[in-house]
């Protein structure tokens, strides 16, 4: 490893990290999967979903926003943390209206894939069945707020990648919603179908028209291997002590 690195420990495994990296980035590079939803490799860290919560030197921290520091002791794959994360994922399911069985994103949805990875069959929380709006005015894209998990990926991608700022949040608390830079219609924004803001949505909230159910079952992203497998596949063979 280069002299520029610091070493941190995740679940007892020592890994090398580059200063400036977050714990999540360092773990990814070392082939250790820390579950996440709002984080995206092309976008600035956000820290909203809290699914990546780890313990750093005994204290809870979001792995996606916490920079590495020399000698950090990180806990990730513990039953305590898995239980908290499971509860958070379930909160996202009951907060919106998620009907996986007919959602166009099924099989490619990161929320659904996480639920499978965590073995969630039914949420412990009561369903809230909120009343939310959808907007099909745009010729290429529609937005269904029922399925939005407020991860802010579209906000960041539109602003920082597409250079547009088509999306942002309005409201507060449980009335917070993803909103658009127009009075009411997505069609009145400069959004284009090929914008990154459209393709980064982890769930079926922002969808490109004409692409529904294109991947047959068996060829969808998470049909064969759980979410995170790609990261875990990069894990170097463990050093023998």
């Amino acid at each position: 490893m280069s002299e520029e690195t610091v070493s941190i420990t995740i679940d007892g495994v020592e890994i090398e990290a580059t200063p400036g990296q977050t714990i999540l980035q360092a773990a990814d590079a070392a082939g250790i999967y820390i579950p996440r939803l709002c984080a995206h490799p092309e976008l600035e860290a956000f820290g909203a979903c809290r699914v990546c919560t780890v313990k750093v030197n005994g204290r809870p921290q979001a792995a996606c926003t916490t920079p590495v520091a020399k000698g950090m002791m990180v806990e990730n794959d513990t039953s305590e943390l898995l239980e908290y994360r499971r509860s958070l994922i379930e909160m996202l399911f009951v907060e919106g209206n998620h009907f996986c069985m007919f959602c166009e994103r099924s099989g490619n949805c990161e929320l659904q894939a996480l639920a499978y990875r965590f073995g969630i069959t039914a949420p412990r929380h009561d369903y809230q069945y909120p009343v939310r709006t959808l907007d099909g005015s745009h010729p290429e894209v529609f937005i269904d707020r029922n399925r939005c998990i407020l991860c802010g990926r579209c906000v960041r991608a539109s602003r920082d990648v597409d250079g547009k700022h088509v999306f942002d949040f309005v409201g507060r608390g449980h009335e917070k919603r993803i909103w658009i830079d127009a009075e009411a219609r997505l069609a009145d924004t400069p959004l284009k179908g090929e914008d990154r803001a459209v393709s980064v949505c982890p769930v079926g909230a922002i969808l490109r028209k004409g692409t529904a159910y294109r991947d047959p079952i068996g060829r969808r992203a998470y049909d064969h291997r759980p979410i995170g497998s790609d990261i875990e596949a990069c894990r170097p063979a463990e050093k023998k002590g």
């Binding site: 909203a48 979903c49 809290r50 958070l88 909160m91 809230q128 407020l150 608390g173 449980h174 917070k176």
Partner: peptide, 22 residues
Amino acid sequence: FAHESCGYCTPCRVGTWLMKKK
């Protein structure tokens, strides 16, 4: 708290509301 939560993070936005409902 549910009313005053900024709504940025999942546990505070959803969790306080669930607690209140319970």
